[in-house]
Design a protein around this nucleic acid. Structure first.
Length: 331
DNA sequence: AACCTGTGCAACCGCCGACCA
DNA sequence: ATGGTCGGCGGTTGCACAGGT
């Protein structure tokens, strides 16, 4: 049985007038709201109960805090969203005076946009990687540079950017229209390998505890720094693009951290964004081997003239101490 | 001045789970 | 056990407004 709001009766819809607001406020202030369905009739409103409830909870409630979101609120929202996903009411429960609707709107109109501009997938809270971005590695490096400037700087000073450039060239060869690689360039294994390779082994996953205050449900209140960065750049100041590892709301105990794992920005992955899923670990996975197996197959399928050239590159990659390929060495 | 486009936000819709008879 | 009702939630829509052409 559908709610009367959806039926073809003569109940009013659309924006509320000041008179309607006053009627609803007067009634609820006097009688409270036990049964929303009965409220419209008793308050003299030609609205459905659902509409009244929405108007009250999102607008008329006396404890609603209106106005712009503060920086702290913004950080909390991003942080909680990285853990909870689109659970707006749960997020709102951590922000006194803010409604789920308000937070949802704020996310969709502002935070989401900012994250996208920063190259961060707002669903996964990770750098967005698609083929175009892979082919434009400078953008990727720019994202990584602010995520972990020390690491990137050391790469540059070690001349390892040349190897990154090499990787870029490799990727360019994986154009779907020309490659015979069965798994294809969008293979998550490839992207994961690249991402995991970028995490230098000496930095590793720290798994230092990171607590959120006030305490909430266990899965909301505690997660590791590794999960945090996998979960997103929650504490990055969106205005300045600088990391802010201390705030009034979060007690961040670990500052030294790994570069966030990179993932493929695909709709399928976004489906599972509400819970932090397992991503790249510091140990190589079979997926890594699949990547190299794929390359070997690619080489085998190629013409003989270029074989030695590509095999040389692959050997170099396999034996390199470069962070880019360290996972292969770990196997 | 008129039109177009983008943005922000209030409100609605449809689904789901809890509760109850 | 079942079906109806209700409240809550997340996704989506539509409107008002601002800024640009």
């Amino acid at each position: 049985m559908r709610s009367p709001c959806s039926d073809g009766n003569n109940l009013k819809k659309g924006p509320w007038t000041p008179e309607e607001d006053q009627k609803l406020m007067d009634y609820i202030n006097k009688n409270g709201h036990v049964n929303w369905k009965s409220i419209p009739k008793q308050a003299g409103l030609n609205r459905c109960g659902k509409s009244c409830r929405l108007r009250w909870t999102n607008y008329l409630r006396p404890d609603i805090k209106r106005g712009h979101f503060t920086k702290d609120e913004e950080r909390i929202i991003i942080k909680l969203h990285s853990v909870l996903g689109n659970k707006w009411s749960r997020i709102a429960s951590h922000l006194p005076g803010r409604t789920d609707n308000e937070i949802k709107n704020f996310w969709n109109t502002q935070i989401r946009k900012k994250l996208l501009q920063m190259g961060i997938d707002p669903n996964t809270h990770k750098p967005r990687i698609d083929l175009n971005q892979l082919l434009n590695l400078s953008q990727l490096l720019s994202t990584m540079r602010f995520a972990n400037p020390i690491s990137i700087t050391s790469w540059e000073s070690n001349g390892q950017l040349a190897q990154i450039q090499l990787l870029q060239n490799l990727l360019q060869l994986m154009n779907p229209s020309t490659t015979t690689l069965s798994s294809g360039p969008q293979n998550p294994n490839l992207l994961n390998l690249i991402a995991s390779s970028i995490n230098t082994p000496h930095e590793g996953l720290l798994n230092n505890p990171l607590s959120i205050t006030p305490q909430a449900e266990p899965n909301e209140s505690q997660f590791s720094i590794g999960e945090y960065f996998e979960g997103g750049f929650g504490l990055i100041d969106l205005e300045t693009n600088t990391k802010s590892l201390g705030s009034t709301s979060f007690d961040v105990k670990a500052e030294n951290s790994t570069i966030p794992a990179l993932v493929e920005a695909s709709p399928m992955e976004n489906k599972s964004s509400s819970t932090p899923t397992s991503h790249l670990s510091s140990t190589a996975s079979p997926a890594d081997n699949d990547f190299f197996d794929g390359w070997e197959k690619f080489l085998d399928d190629g013409d003989g003239a270029s074989d030695s050239y590509w095999r040389e590159i692959l050997d170099l990659a396999s034996s390199s101490q470069s962070p880019l390929f360290c996972k292969k060495n770990n196997t």
